[in-house]
Write a protein that binds this DNA or RNA. Structure first.
Lengths: 338, 338
DNA sequence: TCGCGCATTGTTAGCTTTAACAGCGTGGGT
DNA sequence: ACCCACGCTGTTAAAGCTAACAATGCGCGA
């Protein structure tokens, strides 16, 4: 197939003929079986080299029932978080010798996720990674065949499937505490869309941290992750004089909020402290540089692959829930109240 | 494979038995061949439904010598441009019924690109999409077997392969003209890394537009696409009083430059006008909102797939070079000189 | 009535690989 | 001297599908 439709590629028998052995011996060499005489192995390898032979994946998959391919379902890989997670997954998968087949969805509904999953299982992938930041995606996981290895990434508390996720709660709690410890009486919050598990996790942790500290819990505002929605939230908050600290659920919205504050003449961090979440590469160069929470997406990718391969290899998946820590990055957008 | 290593999945013969026909008739139904009696087709479809039968891709690929899978080589899919292009490619490929196998590279060298290409051809993909923004990637394309369909995305003027790219020259010329027409005597430039074809294209167009307008051509500064490098360029430019307009080769660097200007007390656009390139979602919410050039990455993805499928289908690839237009988006970071 | 063409269906071979088993010499124990 | 174990290699079957060809049955004209 490599070189196409017309001229046939060399097959194992061709190599065997050149090396003067049977095709099965070639197979043994390729698969690293013992009990092949060293001189034979060398002849075979030489023949492989000479013919530029490459093993046919389809034939191998047909007989072994394994494709060495993992399926990935992702959502809007244009966003920094999903893109980074995908990147981490891809690196780890290739390192482990697996191919990756990807479906990215424009919208997450039961239906689109179901479609994607059956599309990939139809391709006979050996396992599935579902970057499932929304409730609907996690629910759709129930539909995958029970013997198909699956990992839900950012899947909150998926009922039955192994999950790998960033410690949203710890990250949100840390940033909220950071603001309280600076001396702010309370912390406002602009959340992400509530059907996103990450948004929910950050909101819950923010709320319980405030309660635990005995602080008043203001009504949260709700955005959709976009800079525009952060801008709109910023316009609302800029009008109030009881706002001295805001925890925004992601950096993009924080950017919009910063702009609204600037337009309204609200100084950051002089008058109001602002913190974000994600630590996108731009965050350090916002005006002012944004205090935020860094997520180690590469680690999430690695751990996801590792958990998935454990399942595929039939090894016990001791930890059905892997949590990757998040770290606070303090920059110039947070300070003591004026 | 779908449902794993132990229990065998239904095969065509199982469907045939249930429907009371031969497996070949099942195959005919599945492949939409004519000359199948309507009542037979219905029986077969019912049996497929009943058994939840799914055709085995490996067996099919083995006999047809086509995998229905396209290989994609991308570079740092964490960046907005590559991520968006990849997204567009993915949507278009799935719509056309093709699977996608992806390799994203951390670094582009002859070696890593070669590796990726042979990895994918080893998987017997039907065609390759190489998101090849750097010269080295284009050079590595020479190594793919001549009968393997390939499209280079953002591949500049790849010698032998079909190319799909955004009209960098037109975009850069337009934004440069925009600044000149506002009344600026000349336009400074912060370029991307020069081994990137996009950086080169923008630089060249900027230069020739200035020359064509009879304007002085200042020495360009060179960044690496990162906000930090834009910040550093900004620090240099902020010190000069002969700078009244800057065209930055991407939005991320423009963000860094804006910050450097703010720190130095240089008002944008009052004292200096700044324009970027890419129109990342954040650009509209920079302070001030950034004038920039929008690239239609989704269209690039679609066109790439379309050109590739033309090759695979043996159709004449009339246009070996598809150029997608770029559009100027004027916002508040550019104005008449003060 | 016979044969011919056509629509429909079945049969066989082949794609390339791995698994299972069979064969064959060599060396050591009895 | 004989037998068995073992290391190495070959032979055969099987995986699930499509392509090519063969066979069936029916209507229709001669």
């Amino acid at each position: 197939m490599l070189s196409g439709r017309d001229r046939r590629n060399p097959a194992m028998t061709d190599v065997a003929r050149v090396a003067g052995v049977s095709h099965q011996t070639v197979s043994r060499v390729l698969n690293g079986h013992p009990n092949v005489r060293e001189s034979t192995r060398e002849r075979v390898l030489a023949a492989i080299d000479q013919l530029a032979y490459r093993r046919n994946h389809a034939a191998r998959a047909l007989v072994t029932r394994r494709t060495e391919t993992l399926g990935v379902v992702a959502f809007d890989t244009t966003l920094y978080g999903p893109a980074s997670t995908l990147f981490g997954v891809e690196q780890a998968a290739r390192e482990a010798g697996y191919f990756l087949s990807i479906v990215s969805l424009k919208a997450i509904t039961r239906h689109t996720v179901d479609d994607a999953l059956s599309y990939l299982t139809g391709q006979s992938v050996d396992g599935l990674i579902v970057i499932a930041p929304q409730r609907q995606a996690v629910e759709a996981l129930a539909a995958v065949p029970p013997d198909m290895p699956v990992v839900a990434v950012e899947g909150g508390r998926a009922p039955d499937q192994p999950v790998v996720c960033v410690d949203q709660a710890e990250g949100a709690a840390t940033v909220t505490r950071h603001l309280l410890e600076l001396g702010h009486e309370t912390v406002w919050h602009v959340s992400g869309p509530l059907d996103w598990l990450e948004a929910e996790g950050r909101l819950d942790a923010w709320q319980s941290t405030l309660k635990h500290a005995g602080a008043n819990v203001p009504d949260p505002l709700h955005g959709d992750w976009s800079p525009r929605s952060g801008y709109e939230a910023g316009q609302q908050l800029a009008g109030r004089d009881d706002v001295s600290a805001v925890f925004v659920a992601n950096d993009q919205m924080a950017l919009g909020l910063l702009r609204a504050f600037r337009e309204a003449g609200v100084d950051v961090p002089g008058r109001v402290s602002v913190a974000g979440f994600d630590d996108i590469p731009e965050a350090e160069f916002f005006s002012p540089p944004l205090t935020t929470v860094r997520q180690d997406f590469a680690e999430v990718g690695r751990r996801s692959i590792s958990v998935l391969l454990d399942q595929i290899g039939g090894r016990d998946v001791e930890s059905r829930r892997v949590v990757v820590p998040a770290t606070l990055v303090v920059r110039a957008s947070t300070a003591k109240p004026g």
